[in-house]
Nucleic acid binder design. Sequence first.
RNA 1: GCCGCCAUAGCUCAGGGGUAGAGCGCGCCAUUGGUAAUGGCGAGGCCGAAAGUUCGAUUCUUUCUGGCGGCACCA
Length: 660
Amino acid sequence: MVAITLPDGSERKFGGPVTGAELAADIGPGLAKAALAVRVNGEMKDLSLAIESDAEVAIITSKDDDALELLRHDCAHVMAEAVQELFSDTQVTIGPNIENGFYYDFARPTPFVPEDIEKIEARMHEIVKRDEEITREVWNRAEAVKFFKDKGEHYKAEIIEGILGDEDISLYRQGDFIDLCRGPHLPSTGKLGKAFKLTKLAGAYWRGDSKNEMLQRIYGTCWADPKQLKAYLHMIEEAEKRDHRRLGREMKLFHLQDVAVGSAFWHPKGWTLYRTVQDYMRKRLEGGGYVEVNTPQLVDRALWEDSGHWEKFRENMFIAEVDESRGGGETHAEGEAGVVSGADHAAATKFLALKPMNCPCHVQIFKQGTTSYRDLPIRMAEFGSCHRYEPSGALHGLMRVRAFTQDDAHIFCTDDQIESETKIFIDLLASIYRDFGFEDFVIKFSDRPEVRAGSDEVWDRAEKALMDATTAAGIDVVLNPGEGAFYGPKLEFVLRDAIGRDWQCGTHQVDFVLPERLDANYIGEDGAKHRPVMLHRAILGSFERFLGILIEHYAGRFPLWLAPVQVVVATITNDADDYAAEVMAELESQGLRAELDTRNEKINYKIREHSHAKVPVIMVVGAQESENGTVAVRRLGGKEQENLALKEAVARLRDEAAMP
RNA sequence: GCCGCCAUAGCUCAGGGGUAGAGCGCGCCAUUGGUAAUGGCGAGGCCGAAAGUUCGAUUCUUUCUGGCGGCACCA
């Protein structure tokens, strides 16, 4: 006797083991047809699995959110089947679900081209039409390895060999296609439906390691019905419209150019935005007990050797070679024209590096004179301009550049202060993110990496202090094992861009190593020298990336305090020009960023144009306003206007535009 | 850095072995019009760079540079 409890609490009894399919049929023919899988005691299982003992069971149909998981995974299998039918020289590797879809990595002698994608997609639809039964088989590991090796599927064989334990493994078969898989799966390929689309073609390294060969990855998206697919594709399209690279150009904020790869040219409006953010940050740092410093761009190799960067980070550094026997002190980029020959020249050659980080310089400031424990913590901030030679393929608009400015700071403190400083920092960061409109963000906790400096005891202490502080701050963290810096654990504060890509912005790292390497110390209560701890921290991360995120977050429609142009005064006819100048003067006297549009154009045209430019407020002035001393205030996107006395309108905007 | 794709006017893009086109934008002229496109005229291009094939290359081939999407790497 097997008793099945359904989600509505009702119970059904069966004489013996019952499969999900039978259960569904027992409930009703409609459900039997719609059933995709079952959830047995909370775990998703195949419809064909026999339920042997009493259990809570739910039948999963395409209406369930869980169904997406199944559909996407099946879609990956169907894609793999299609690929192998079309391209017999292709080996399959892995094909997991991801957000909104799935991918599958294939190994083949020649890469796919975009036309292949169309063929594969067409074949996938055929396979769905064929409605092949999907069956589960349990195999002995050794046999499975041999089977895949004989088939020429070396990657699969390697995966099976790599599975820990010695239980049997499950394979799923559909038509002639058979794949290693934990399951569960749909009962047949016909259940997949039509709501899928292959989206991207890309290279990807086997096992995610750049030392390995490159596989061909095909990404797809898959949904329960065509409406969802359409909605998703529409959402992507809309998101692309807020891409900061597009808005940066359209709104004349910045541009990028190949004469300075990976560096932004900030235009007047973009620079206004940048400066506004910087002014705000400066205010918050001052309120947060930080002192601001500024340190050199070009620093001698000696310091980088001491700090460890020359050894660990050299590949990422811009190095300038300076021939000091020469009068001018010109520099040559590394590997470029600076050919030095002969011992005399070599002796006169110095290597300077553009700083990739500010920390070693901050330690130099810390080390000037002596520091008492009474002075700690010292929160030393710099809007530090850094250069890093990033791999060309990593560059991405403002999000990943080679020249950037960090809102960097190093907190020199005692071990005992780590926890409180961390909590103070998280509070400051959260408050600042809120001011920028980011209520939700992910915090990753990255703990000790395999290759690290410092004893396990030190790591235990650092990790605990960091974790306790996040708990004290009342914030959840996502564990990110093994991803800490080599000198200490870190918190990463992650924001998401318009098209769903995550970017680390803020960071908070505990460092016991650099103070040691650079011999920083303070005088303790006991009169002896002690090592301070350094907390490396940034809130925005880099201005470039943060502004990129900010542009996308607001889709260019900035809140008033951030908008590069806050108000445009637009006249209806030239008769209002004089009055418009008065309005401008009033706006500017209150510190508002305003522009005047007295062109001989229709008001409709002006409104359309400034709306496209995403100016938050348009003040329309014509004969009426001139006569009454008022302005008609029109908000971006709004249909209505508000008629207000000039002084009052400006005063209101001034208050609204105040920096938070 | 690796795989694939792309590079034509300021922007978005069409074209194609015989030295180029549209829309928007820009300039000029007319229009002075109350809340998201007034009309007319006009100027813009070494078709990313170099080499090769060819009588002839913007078009075909190769290399390079840059961009895009991933991967790897990272604020």
